[in-house]
Design a protein around this nucleic acid. Structure first.
Lengths: 150, 150
DNA sequence: CAAAACCCTAGTGGAAAACCGGAGTATACT
DNA sequence: AGTATACTCCGGTTTTCCACTAGGGTTTTG
């Protein structure tokens, strides 16, 4: 499948789901708690959260009793924004690609254009999902599973 | 950008464009010719063409005056088919993914579903482009460039 | 001040991608 | 028939990237 779901993105999304769950409480969640809950290597998760912080998706509170919180409400955070932040295709990657597209051979440029179009289609999907959507969908699924169990 | 364009796929597409150009002549094109024309390492291209042959996209003629030809007309070959052949996500990868989707945690499953959706959107784009479309587009672009030059 | 937490940077291991080489096999031409 | 040409098969090498680890620093609470 052309669209990759990297370990990195999955970890980040799982962590962000945890943060979304407690968003209304305004209490920070610590790396250890998240990593234990979602089975993510803590030192690795730390890096991902740092990246998300620089991207303005989460904010952090330092010192004892510190931790991470969502920077905005879950409704205002799209999945595209998250993966863009992590995979880092925001500005510098764009330029490189555009430059490469024009310096390449004619055929290479055509191919790149088509891929760009496929990429845009995938991005649009991710653009239209928010963290809240994921939470809602999970809750609905959980409810359904419970009904089957009874 | 979520949708990768591997070196492998690009090489293959460039080679197939060459083959599409001479499709009507029914004359085979040799690896050396293609690799020289498109600046592709010949021994690597050889592997790719072998894969495409097993996938029924090209056919080969052995011996002296041998080479490769498209197995079908360029109109009948979609880009999705090509990358699926090379990247090998046809049957066994599907099963693994579906299995993983269900054995994963609930959250992981939800995420996988969304990614599947984004993937499908990208695939649909690639499904709707044929080799002939690429050729046409290239020719149109070349014509345009020529007009600007004059 | 000490403990708890985040912060920064560098590096490691392993796997996959990209690429190379050699021996074998089929085909055309003479 | 024999030889040159080109594909075929398969194993090895190199390079790149990803997931992960490590260590030393800084901020905040109590």
């Amino acid at each position: 499948m052309p669209v990759e779901l990297s370990c990195k993105s999955e970890y980040a999304l799982l962590a962000l789901l945890e943060l979304a769950d407690v968003y209304t409480s305004k209490e920070p969640l610590q790396i250890r708690q998240i990593s234990a809950q979602q089975h993510i290597p803590d030192r690795y998760l730390e890096q991902l959260l740092a990246t998300l912080r620089r991207g303005g998706i989460v904010r952090s509170q330092r010192g004892a009793k510190g931790g991470y919180l969502l920077a905005r409400e879950p409704r205002k955070i799209t999945l595209l924004e998250i993966v863009a932040c992590l995979e880092g295709f925001d500005a510098q990657a764009k330029e490189q690609e555009d430059a490469a597209k024009f310096t390449k051979t004619l055929e290479g440029g055509i191919i790149a254009e088509v891929w760009q179009e496929a990429d845009q289609a995938a991005k649009t999907i991710l653009q239209n999902y928010t963290l809240q959507d994921l939470c809602d969908r999970r809750d609905a699924r959980q409810q359904l599973d419970l009904m089957y169990y009874i």
